[in-house]
Structure formats: structure tokens, C-alpha cells
């Protein structure tokens, strides 16, 4: 059973092609890594799958619903954490999580419990009633992640979830992602940190210039390009000038 299926998913910005007819199948309960160089189309793909952007062509099914025909049903079943921490900074962490839970339709009695659970999980209880404007980047990231999973979604889209986090928090996020998958949720994550993708993701897709250039398990990718580490696989598949060549300009 697939949690995410894309069918020639395409997105143009004006005349610029950002995502070019991608086809992906992500099974339920899988931690899926989505890698690619800057500007490859990772965030655009995640935004389309989260029903933030509409595809120009093609479609996708997320948690059993079509993202174009039933966006509201999709949104009920997904969680989304943006690339950069984005919050209503004049709310407190508690208020923000409470609002997100309410908009997800969590009933009154349960909502408070879930908010406290999330604050404890992300070690934010002391700062729960402070305005988000005063939070550090890492703390803001944690609030975004908490908001993405507070309603126990079936599919979670995390765009660079560990960016800006200290080692301890990054470890916590990795553990949370794996636990979510163990409990049956699907996690679709983009990252630039090869080590995290290599160690945590069951399947990986690499996107370059809007096109998915490889997809499979770590072993599949190693066998395909005859490289051992994910970093080497990534560099081989995404091409571009050699680093040594570029440093001559310095």
C-alpha cells in the first residue's frame, strides 16, 4: 500500500520548470529521504504534496486522496514542517500548538493533553508561555516540528528538519521520525545532511534540476553508480563541475 504516489507531477513558475514529471511511490511506514542540490525542486515537490502549491501538470495521491481533487482530506491526514522556521511570532508556543491542534479538529479535552505532550517531547515546557519571537532558531524549528505531528498524521512532510538544530535536538528529531515510522506513519523528508539520510532513511530519491535521477534503497543506489557513500553517489548523480576545478577561482 502506498502512502504517496506521484503521477508525472510537474510545476512551472512562469516559464521556469521547477519539477519535471516526477513519478514516486512511497510505501506506508517508510522513512523516505528526498535529496538534491539547491534549487533542484525538493521544496516545490514537498509543497505540492502538502497541498500548498498546485501542480501545473500531473497529480499525486497522499494517504489515499488525490491532492488536486481532495486537498482538504489530504490536509487532515498530513503534517508539514517548512524549510525555514515559520511561526506566528507574537503567539506563545502553547497558543500556537493549541491553535494548530484546534484547526486539525482535535477535541477540547484532548487538545490540552497533546499540547503538553509536545511541549515535553521537544523540551519546550519552560518556554511554553513565552512569545515565539524571542525563541532561538532551533527552538522555533522544534515548535514547527511539534505542530507538524501534534495531530498524529499518517504522512509527515519535513523540509530540512534538522537544519539549525544542535546535536542533541537533531538526535531527538531522528528518533522521533523513526518512532513515527514504527507506529505506521510515513515520513517524507528532504535534507542536505547525507549522514542523516544514509543512517535513517529506508528509501532515498535524488532529484536534480526537477528530475528524479535515482530512487531506491541505499543498496540499490550503491549498485547503480558503484560508489560506497551516499555523498559520492549524490555527487556522481547530480554532476556539475569538480570542486577542485572551482577552487582555482580563489
Amino acid at each position: 500500500m502506498y502512502a504517496i504516489q506521484t503521477f508525472n507531477l510537474t510545476r512551472y513558475y512562469g516559464s521556469t520548470l521547477a519539477v519535471d514529471h516526477i513519478n514516486l511511490n512511497v510505501e506506508e511506514g517508510v522513512l523516505f529521504g528526498f535529496l538534491g542540490p539547491n534549487g533542484a525542486g525538493k521544496t516545490t515537490t514537498i509543497k505540492m504534496l502538502s497541498c500548498i502549491l498546485r501542480p501545473t501538470e500531473g497529480s499525486a495521491r497522499v494517504a489515499g486522496y488525490n491532492i488536486v481533487e481532495n486537498p482538504l482530506e489530504v490536509k487532515k491526514l498530513i503534517g508539514y514542517s517548512p524549510e525555514y522556521p515559520v511561526l506566528y511570532e507574537r503567539l506563545t508556543a502553547r497558543e500556537f500548538l493549541d491553535m494548530t491542534a484546534l484547526l486539525h479538529g482535535i477535541p477540547d479535552g484532548e487538545r490540552e493533553e497533546r499540547v503538553i505532550e509536545m511541549l515535553e517531547l521537544f523540551d519546550l515546557k519552560r518556554e511554553a508561555d513565552q512569545r515565539l519571537a524571542g525563541f532561538s532558531k532551533g527552538m522555533k524549528r522544534k515548535v514547527n516540528l511539534a505542530a507538524a505531528i501534534i495531530h498524529r498524521p499518517k504522512v509527515v512532510f519535513l523540509d530540512e528538519p534538522t537544519m539549525g538544530l544542535d546535536a542533541r535536538s537533531a538526535r531527538l528529531v531522528k528518533e522521533i521520525m523513526m518512532e513515527l515510522c514504527r507506529k505506521g506513519s510515513t515520513v517524507f523528508m528532504s535534507t542536505h545532511v547525507m549522514e542523516i539520510a544514509e543512517k535513517t532513511c529506508e528509501r532515498i530519491a535524488i532529484i536534480n534540476e526537477g528530475v528524479v535521477v535515482a530512487e531506491g534503497t541505499m543498496e540499490d543506489l550503491q549498485a547503480r553508480v558503484h560508489e560506497k557513500t551516499l555523498e559520492d553517489i549524490f555527487l556522481t548523480l547530480t554532476g556539475g563541475p569538480e570542486v577542485k576545478e572551482l577552487t582555482k577561482y580563489l
Binding site: 497541498c51 500548498i52 517548512p82 506566528y88 484547526l103 486539525h104
Partner: peptide, 14 residues
């Protein structure tokens, strides 16, 4: 408001 794109649009509200 820029935040609404990332915070309200992905939520199940019309």
C-alpha cells in the same frame, strides 16, 4: 502574510 502560506494553507481548513 507570508507565514500563512506555511502555517494555514497546509491545515485542513477551507
Amino acid at each position: 502574510r507570508e507565514e500563512d502560506v506555511e502555517l494555514l494553507v497546509p491545515l485542513p481548513v477551507t
